[in-house]
Design a protein around this nucleic acid. Sequence first.
RNA 1: CGGAGUGUAGCGAAGCGGUUUAACGCGCCUGCUUUGGGAGCAGGAGAUCGGGAGUUCGAAUCUCCCCACUCCGACCA
Length: 418
Amino acid sequence: MLQSKLFSKTSKDISKDEVSLNAQLLTKAGLVDKSAAGVYNLLPLGWRVMKKIENIIREEMELVGGQELFLPTLHPKKNWEKTDRWQSMEEDLYKIKIGNVDKLVLGPTHEEVLVPLAKKFISSYKDLPQYVYQFQNKFRREKRVKSGILRTREFLMKDLYSFHADQEDLDNYYEKVKKTYQKIFQRCGIKDQTYLTYASGGTFAKYSHEFQTLTLAGEDLIYICDKCKVAINKEIIADQDYKCPVCGNTKLKKKKAVEVGNIFKLGVKFSKPFDLFYSKEDGQKELAVMGCYGIGLQRLMGSIVEIKNDERGIIWPISVAPFQVHLLELDPRDAQVKENAQKLYQILQQKGIEVLWDDRADKLAGAKFADCDLIGIPYRVVASKKTLKEGKYEIKGREEKDGQMVGLEELLKIVIGK
RNA sequence: CGGAGUGUAGCGAAGCGGUUUAACGCGCCUGCUUUGGGAGCAGGAGAUCGGGAGUUCGAAUCUCCCCACUCCGACCA
């Protein structure tokens, strides 16, 4: 991608109203832009990050047998009445009228659509288990949005739903997804800050589990057990019940965190209102047992930014970076330098490396370095008169202080080696 | 939804005890120069001062209503 053609630009000054670090950095770097309170546009650079995150999640979902589908945003009112959430979630729902009458809901979650759908295909124990997931926008009528892209009214969510014949099968699958979630957050580069957190379990389980990422921008308070590397959400801590649910340790550390994912045993909460029965081997009818598993993608992206940054800008983990290499062409009016940069650009792309080539003719070196640090692509490669004279390129990792002069072979080794 | 605050050019931001060419910075356009940490000089374009109503000879500035955004709180399977 030529930076001179990029849709977005970086900016030094952004609205003072944007106080959260994640939104400040993402806005300055040109990855997101706010269009209304709690509503953000994702610009090409930001969308590339989202796609990287999405692909990591998709790969892991496939590994646990998930089948991707796509359910509508608009949900029939009657489905929401059936679960009573038309009433009980009233404050969170965007209700859509046709004419003067409420007819539809902008989905805040998808059980109300998926369960009646599953009913059409699940009728025997032979049809179970089933695992389906999707990436879909969710709408929540938040009374107050906050923390940049961490709490918004519309956001992209991966939601996986599992259907099982019995509780034991759900329990086994639940544990599997728990491990998968840890792997996802590890692949996204926030493993060290993300804690498996015990939270309120609803009617069908003692606990649900959240994945809480430590950041001052978070709204949740969790208590961490250093021995077990797990945490417990403040919301389920009774007055003095400060002990680790795993080892009983009572010396827990209180920290602020943001919930980047959760897994939840639904039991028959939704199969019941929709009569999702299946026939057992003996012909008896039984309700299917369900689990649900969510990850908010913008929130995950924002959490990464909250953690991975310095005074100059964002520091993307290579797994989710919008590009792997930021090629800075200094001396852009020098034909030989341009040719040299062009050559490297093509070679890297042939090797499957994603490159943002700063070919802007009207920017001096300082401006290019500053933008490069702000956007936070893992490798900065400089092509200039200086590097050309030595027959080399300069490469520098985003977190390294100084670059090094390397030949093409060595450069490829560094960049592809990762 | 309660409390507090803020809306002036694409962005940031002065002016806000009424007088009229609404400053300045970033960005943008033109020209020349410059070229390894956000370049310099010269010229230029761009503003229904959030919207509406009112007070006044005269309103960005005062009053009222509305809207938007932000922060604190409550809420958040």
